Each structure stands twice: as structure tokens, then as C-alpha cells.
Amino acid sequence: MTLRLLSFSLSALLLSTPAFADWKPQESTKFYRVSGTTEPELYASIGERGPQMSLGRTIAQTTFKLTWQRKYENQNGACVLARAVPRLLITYHLPKPANALPEPVKTHWTKFSAGVERHEKFHGVIITDMVRAIERETVGLRVENDPGCTRIKTEMTRRLAALSQAQRQRSREYDRVELGDGGPVHRLILEFVNRGATPPPL
């Protein structure tokens, strides 16, 4: 019975559409330097100096830091999350040539790096969507018989864990499509490297 009452109160609360804070993520870019004067040399340098992840190095990476300012209110023994303002810092880690490039390598690099940045920027969109989902799921949340606002934090942790897992799954699926055979980033890499490949002897 308690679970049903809680579910009902949450449903009624969602229908009231609480006001959300007006915010935007703060985005920044950090570059790591790569060396080379040809497309294959530059790509090889990426393999040596790219961001280190669990399965090895990658071309680029998007990281984020998320903190909240939350205001809880005690309403006749119930705890309500009245306001939550996120501070989201998104950082894109991208490659950049250490030295000036000759033409046409410079033009090829510009197209390649723009495609990589586009890919990472969408990871930023996925992260931002997660934070907005957290707002929808938690702002206005009310838990009865919780004057110390402890039960509400347990409920929020459960919801946040599910939303975080959904974000990671969406990110993995996006990478699977983009980096898989024939995907946009896969084609981008092949086009870039093959432009500088030495033609076979006649």
C-alpha cells in the first residue's frame, strides 16, 4: 500500500509540471599534440598519444563533471526536493597537429578533425540530455514520512543510477553505429588515412 501511495503522489506531482532552472552546460576543449606531416603519420601519432581508456587509446574523448545545488523542504513530515540547479562541465579531448601541415594534408586534416569534433559534440548532447532527465525525475519529488530527508535521497540515488546507466548505453550504441564498419567515423578515418597512403608500384 505504501508503494502505491508513493507512486500516486509522484504521478500527481509530475502533472503539476514544476519549474526548472534555466541553465546551459559549460563546454571546453583540451588538445593533445600529434606529430607528422602525412596523413598516416598523423594517425599513427594519434594511436600513440590519444586519450587512454579501458580498452586502449582512442582518437578523442568527452568527459564531464556534474554537481548540484539542491534545496529540500519539509512539508508536514514529508520531504520535497523544491529546487535543483545543475552545474555541468563538459570537456572535449581532441587531437591537434604540433606543427604546421603542408597542403593538401592540412585540408584533409581540417575535414578529419571537424568530423571527430562533430562526433564528440553529440556525446555532449547525450550527457546534457541525461542531466535534463535527472531534473524531470527529481525536481518536485515528494516522499511522505521523511522529516529528515533521508528516504528521498535513497530514492534519488536509485533514479540517478538508472539514468546514468541509460546515458552510458546510449553513448555506447552511438559509438557502435558511428565507429562500426561503414559508419560515419569509420569512413572518415579510412578516407583520411588512405589519402596519404603510398600508391603501389606499377
Rank of each mutant, 00 (worst) to 15 (best):
T128E: 06
R142N: 05
L3A: 06
R83L: 09
A21D: 08
L42C: 08
K24V: 15
V131K: 13
Q52W: 03
A98Y: 02
P147H: 10
L179T: 15
G148H: 02
G47T: 05
Y43N: 00
T150Y: 10
L190C: 08
E178T: 06
D175C: 12
R4F: 01
A161H: 02
P147E: 07
D146N: 08
L101I: 06
R70M: 08
L13I: 04
T67C: 09
L163W: 05
G182E: 04
T38N: 04
V85L: 14
L42E: 06
C149L: 09
F8P: 00
H119C: 13
T37I: 15
T150V: 10
R70N: 10
R159F: 02
W109E: 01
T138F: 09
K153D: 09
V80A: 03
L42Q: 08
P95F: 07
L160C: 12
E39P: 02
Q75E: 12
V185Y: 09
Q75N: 07
Q165Y: 04
S171W: 13
H93Y: 03
L190Q: 14
F192H: 00
L88W: 13
L15T: 06
R132Q: 12
R136V: 08
L190I: 12
N194L: 01
S113I: 11
Q69Y: 13
K24S: 12
S54K: 13
R136S: 10
S28Y: 08
T154Y: 04
A19N: 00
I46C: 07
R168Y: 05
I126C: 00
F31D: 14
V125H: 00
V139G: 06
T138M: 14
A114R: 04
E48D: 09
S45V: 00
T58G: 04
T150W: 10
F20R: 03
P18R: 15
N74A: 06
V125S: 00
S9W: 00
A98Q: 12
F122E: 09
S171N: 14
Q52C: 05
R118M: 15
L14Q: 12
G180A: 13
A19E: 01
L55I: 02
A12C: 02
D22F: 13
P201K: 10
S45Y: 01
V143Y: 07
L101Q: 11
V34Y: 13
E117T: 14
L202R: 09
S45P: 01
G140K: 00
P51K: 06
E155L: 15
Y32W: 03
A162V: 15
S54V: 09
S113G: 06
